[in-house]
């Protein structure tokens, strides 16, 4: 597959390491009342869609950026690629 890196352009997916569902960005607050339950869901519950999936890829043989890749798991079509740091900020992970 080819991943269109937001900074570097098209790169072979061989250069990347796959992690999984991009919801891993949404790490719960450890001080929440139901923190244990939230962490359980965060770590163990995943959707497994046949279709569009937002997932984390690490450009390990490249610039070491973590990316959020929106990929159709059926066709392998890649619809969007973002820097994970930007996604994390947009999802409220700034301090």
């Amino acid at each position: 597959m080819i991943i269109n890196h937001p900074i570097l352009g098209p790169r072979d997916s061989q250069e990347f390491t796959y992690l999984g569902d991009a919801t891993l960005i949404d790490r719960p607050d450890w001080e929440a009342d139901d923190a244990a339950g939230q962490f359980h869901d965060y770590l163990y519950l995943r959707d497994n869609p046949a279709g569009e999936h937002r997932e984390l890829w690490f450009h390990e043989q490249g610039d070491r950026s973590w990316l959020v890749v929106t990929r159709n798991t059926v066709t392998h079509e890649i619809l969007n690629v973002e820097l994970a740091r930007d996604v994390a900020r947009a999802r409220g992970r700034s301090k």
């Binding site: 390491t17 992690l19 891993l24 960005i25 790490r27 984390l56 690490f58 390990e60 070491r64 950026s65 973590w66 820097l83 994970a84 740091r85 996604v87 994390a88 900020r89 992970r93 700034s94 301090k95």
Partner: peptide
Amino acid sequence: AVLVYRNMEFARQCLFPDM
């Protein structure tokens, strides 16, 4: 060594992006 570095980058970029 490789895994720890990867996990640290994950924490740095995805979990604590403004540290």
